[in-house]
Amino acid sequence: MHMEKLHIRPLKRRHITDYTVKVISTVGALVGLFFLTWILYEVTLRGLMALNWAFFTELPSPPGVTGGGVANAILGTVIITILAAIMGTPLGILAGVFLAEFGKGSKFSSLVRFMTNILIGVPSIIVGVFVYTLIVAPMKSFSGLAGAVSLAIIMLPVIVRTTEDMLNMVPNSLRESGLALGVSRWQVTLQIVFKAARSGMLTGILLAVARVSGETAPLLFTAMNSSYWLTSLNEPTANLTVTIFNYAMSPYADWQAKAWGASLLIMAAVLALNIFARLVTRKKVT
């Protein structure tokens, strides 16, 4: 019925419409690529100008004083991110194991699956507010620990979902052969299923780490920031992303330049993690 109508139109006009649409969609794709290149270019260019030895090794200079670095913030970001991964990864993997191995078709796992997808979409700043009311307010202090908890909450649903997806790709015959040999259920999961899904799960974890390592909003009022070296996880902890925010909003050109340097560092780390994560799975496929 629909096709009949198409045939009535003059051929030439149809070709012109077709050509126009092709041009529009090619231009659309180029627009996307253009903005990506533009952002990468500006951040790389301005970032490189700010990088020097002091940037990586020294503490921040006082407001308005040129020089110094963001060494404490680099260390802080690394520590907070690793801590978040330590908290979020086992929890997320085990939850994913439950969904894939034990919870097929139950109402409870449908609820968990649904909530996981919703939690992925909860704005990261809300997680920050939540952790503030949960940890920062009762302890009466901003802390690196609270920052790590926020990031772990953001990682959790991402890991749950990728773990479940990856375990679902493992054929049931593998589980059956393990069980037939008399291996218990938990050993089958840990030693056979995990081994088969290893690279996919690793990709999921890396992508989750990449996602949180560039997060700013959940750290603003949990880890906050500091101009000193970290001595304890119960005090405000310097980190790169909040430093970028504070420096960018400051009136000092030197601080703004450092914000670009820190942006380059974060962007390079996040993109490298992303590309590496994708390479891990691709190797398995070929």
Binding site: I39, G214, I244, M267, N274
Partner: peptide
């Protein structure tokens, strides 16, 4: 997909 991976704060700076 890389465009999606770039952290929000980088978009802010730019």
């Amino acid at each position: 997909e890389l465009l999606a991976a770039i952290p929000s704060i980088i978009y802010g700076m730019w």
